[in-house]
């Protein structure tokens, strides 16, 4: 009965159920991180490197900003019927010095969030088809007691 869990985007994140990571690259020349992966040329104008390491990005960060989607987006978004609003979070990764967007996990509302809050990356269903559950990365608030995984 159970559907197979597959990534909604191939090669964008690890399929680790417990501690997933976004998959990025890092320039061997200047250390700049890339998400999505960049493997051809570095975008830093002071760097001509064309060599990159494959890296897993930090899976925790702090809220930069947040919003929600009250209306159903157009295709290629695949909406449940009826449409269920969801929350969107921009999270700052300290080591990589970059901000990454994503949906918040189901049940997290705009009123649950504040700038600076600690968040962690998890996998959750983006949509389902007949055979598969299509997973994506989402942001989930970390417990404030510091008891994070």
């Amino acid at each position: 009965m159970n559907k197979t869990q597959v990534p909604a985007l191939e090669g964008w994140f690890t399929m680790d159920a417990e501690k997933p990571h976004l998959l990025g690259t890092q320039c061997k020349g200047c250390g700049t991180y890339y998400f999505p992966r960049q493997t051809v040329f570095c975008k830093n104008p002071a760097c001509e490197s064309e060599a990159f390491d494959e890296v897993q990005l930090s899976r925790t960060g702090k809220v930069w900003s947040f919003t929600n989607a009250c209306y159903q987006p157009p295709e290629p978004f695949v909406a449940p019927d009826p449409f269920v609003p969801y929350t969107i979070v921009a999270v700052e990764l300290e080591k990589e010095k970059m901000i990454v967007l994503g949906q918040a996990v189901e049940g997290v509302e705009v009123s649950d969030l504040k700038a600076g809050m600690d968040m962690e990356l998890v996998l959750e269903t983006l949509f389902e088809d007949d055979e598969n559950e299509k997973l994506t990365w989402k942001w989930k608030p970390l417990p404030t007691d510091g008891g994070a995984a």
Binding site: C30, T32, A46, C47
Partner: peptide
């Protein structure tokens, strides 16, 4: 879906 990384130069 993400900003540039400001690892090497300031944002």
């Amino acid at each position: 879906l993400a900003t540039d990384s400001a690892f090497a130069v300031e944002a």
